[in-house]
């Protein structure tokens, strides 16, 4: 990750914290700056082609009648 990328991530995290109206400690802010790219990368697993036409399970009804 380049310095430019890191600056972008830090700016994004600062923006998200501000929009949420949260107060965080400097240590928490630094943690989120480190964690944010990992978290976003993990979301690639949610955007598979198989889910393109899937209906969301917004309230999951466990069901044995399938």
């Amino acid at each position: 990750m380049t310095k430019h990328d890191k600056d972008d991530v830090a700016a994004t995290v600062d923006h998200l914290i501000a929009v949420a109206g949260m107060t965080v400690t400097p240590e928490e802010r630094d943690y989120f700056v480190r964690a944010y790219p990992i978290l976003r990368a993990s979301l690639r697993h949610l955007r598979l082609p198989e889910a393109r036409d899937a209906e969301p399970a917004l309230m999951y009804p466990a069901d044995n009648r399938r």
């Binding site: 998200l16 949420a20 928490e28 989120f32 979301l43 949610l46 889910a51 969301p56 399970a57 917004l58």
Partner: peptide, 26 residues
Amino acid sequence: RLRLLHGMLYTAADFVQAQRMRSVVR
């Protein structure tokens, strides 16, 4: 606090996409 604050880092689309993937996995 640290765990709970993770929620502010996601988008609405992330949440719905998670539920769509949930259907596929189930």
